[in-house]
Write a protein that binds this DNA or RNA. Sequence first.
DNA 1: CTACCAATGTGAACATTGTTCAATTTAACC
DNA 2: GGTTAAATTGAACAATGTTCACATTGGTAG
Lengths: 198, 198
Amino acid sequence: MRDQKKNRRRVQILEIARGIIATKGLRSLKVRDVAEAAGCSVGSVYNEFGDFDGVILTVNRETVQALTERLAGVPAEDPVRQLYGLAETYLEFFAEHANLLRSLFEHRMEDDRPYPDDILQMVMDAFALMHPPLVRLLPDADDVKIALLSRTLFSAVHGIISLGLEERMVAVPPQLLRQQVEQFLDAHLAGLGILPLR
Amino acid sequence: MRDQKKNRRRVQILEIARGIIATKGLRSLKVRDVAEAAGCSVGSVYNEFGDFDGVILTVNRETVQALTERLAGVPAEDPVRQLYGLAETYLEFFAEHANLLRSLFEHRMEDDRPYPDDILQMVMDAFALMHPPLVRLLPDADDVKIALLSRTLFSAVHGIISLGLEERMVAVPPQLLRQQVEQFLDAHLAGLGILPLR
DNA sequence: CTACCAATGTGAACATTGTTCAATTTAACC
DNA sequence: GGTTAAATTGAACAATGTTCACATTGGTAG
């Protein structure tokens, strides 16, 4: 019963923190706001997460988990369609949760403490989801090279999307951005000797 | 004489702030540290820059200026070589000044104040430096499309480099990253119907 | 059921850091 | 040299992360 209660609160704190980050950005996340909204003291937040970075990192961990699940749901029948699907799903997810993704990629630790390895690994694993379809499309290529290509390609897509959705920059209309990503893949896959969709 | 002194200090504050960001990261930048190192009071920093964001934004403005100068120095004789040169120069500059570039791309304003337009425009202008060589290489293409392509391509390169240099992520060795960028351009230019370098 | 105790929760106090502004100092001008 | 407007100061304030001695709670044994 202790555990149930504790866990319920832990989940509640995370949902509140995630809500604030998603709607107002990471910089607007304050311990006191979270504690008040969760109906507990600031001390409880610290008991549960160690420090405030702990809250942020846990939200980020769940963000990359949710992203991975969404990406894993992309149909894998046609490897070419799968690549387009991964890119477009990433775009959708990024557009829906822009501030959460920014928190994941932009948060810096206090002092010089290292970013938790497990989160980094999860991001890399998500970016490696282009690996299987690429292996099918380039059966003769070295597996290590495909692994690198997968990361490169996903990083490129990430760059196009994260800068394109950056409302700080001259905002790219979402529909145009989708087209931009598709055309990018068209050209790049063609360059790899893969027949694009259109 | 007032102006001289004032300007000398302004420059000094900026150099100190830039040094701290470059070596210890944006999160380690503190008003008091800057004021002490500049031999003045915290009030003077505020007189000169309005608020602390003002210091950061001025450093960022100078960062994108320096970047633009470096990119503008890439030889333009051969448009294909120019594209590779722009990407490699960006990689070099990013590797040399990783924390400054992160400050430029990751800094968020307090509350919801907008990021200064002039900085955004300067970044877009820098990313548009791929436009002229692309026009030469694709003389039949629509100019608006080339403008979009330029931004897309540079954003892609930015994504590859910024994630590749992210020491938070599993560090990609610099030499491998250079090769990664080159191979990326190889494939993409080929897909655009442009003969790559190698 | 009660007493006890270990775990948990609390929030006031503290530490750090951004911000303000009344008082002071400076330097340009006559 | 006196006057004055501008610049500078730094103590005080505000916002926010962090700690910890104390209070509360819930499980457990007698």
